[in-house]
């Protein structure tokens, strides 16, 4: 028996908005530790990894591991029936072929009860090696969303360059080119600030497809800040924390010079 109750139901709604356009369906693995889901887009350029730890939920029970094979368009349609301040409960039997979703309104005068049919998804799980990142950059998530949107008007590639105390985003194309530089700001504890941490002082610069970065920024509402981790010739990691007990992470393969 699996049952998980999320007081902040909006977390699930927002997570689905950040997932459904990249991966059409996925296995949501439920264990005593929490719920995790990972999947790649069809062209194997971006990997999406969702982690919702058990203490994100105010009630969490998972007697035996349960796999919920979910179609994300359907799941999203059902979640759209939930208000942002609804309490959402997920329930499933062992070896389930359906999942029960319960939405309770904040003032408890409305409850909605949905059953979603599960699908068999044979999806290999990828091992993500630990990587020493040359640079870890934190920027306000809305700022990053705006930069990706603005620069993608110039072309299909966005170059992210990090050097001491500064991160630069640039794009070039037929109409011209653009470069946006963010300086590390003073007190980095405030959510609205920029922080740039470098492993060594060697600058690094990588190119990425702007289309995917714009998919990732659909998760912006999950967190005030977004973390970018770069390492030469390695995938970019774009992370949105979900409170202190969860995250939605994206791994994007770089564009390699000829």
């Amino acid at each position: 028996m699996f049952e998980a109750r999320l007081l902040q139901g909006s977390i699930l709604k927002k997570a689905l908005e950040g997932i459904r356009e990249l991966i059409t369906s996925g296995n949501w693995e439920c264990s005593s530790a929490g719920i995790s889901m990972q999947g790649m887009d069809p062209s194997h350029v971006a990997l999406t990894v969702l982690m919702l730890q058990n203490d994100l939920f105010d009630q969490f029970r998972c007697d035996r591991n349960v796999t919920l094979g979910l179609n994300h368009a359907t799941f999203s349609k059902i979640l759209k029936c939930a208000a942002n301040d609804d309490i959402i409960t997920l329930k499933a039997e062992d070896q389930p072929d359906e999942c029960n979703l319960l939405f309770q309104s904040a003032n408890d005068d409305k409850t909605s009860d949905f059953i979603i049919k599960l699908t068999d998804i044979d999806q290999e799980t990828l091992g993500i090696p630990d990587t020493e990142y040359a640079a870890t950059v934190k920027v306000p998530s809305v700022e990053f969303q705006r930069i990706c949107r603005d620069l993608s008007q110039f072309g299909d590639t966005i170059i992210i360059s990090v050097k001491k105390g500064c991160v630069e985003f640039s794009g070039t194309g037929e109409i011209g080119s653009a470069k946006i530089a963010l300086k590390e700001s003073g007190n980095v504890d405030d959510d609205e600030k920029v922080s740039v941490e470098m492993d060594k002082d060697t600058p690094c610069s990588l190119s990425f497809a702007s289309r995917y970065l714009n998919y990732f920024t659909k998760a912006t509402s999950l967190s005030d800040t977004v973390t970018l981790q770069l390492c030469p010739e390695h995938p970019l990691v774009v992370s949105y924390d979900i409170g202190d007990n969860g995250s939605l992470k994206y791994y994007l393969a770089p564009k390699i010079e000829e």
Binding site: M40, V45, A46
Partner: peptide, 14 residues
Amino acid sequence: HGHQSSLDSFFRKK
């Protein structure tokens, strides 16, 4: 800006 690489060259299937 070069060609798009694939994650398959970075991540191993478990």
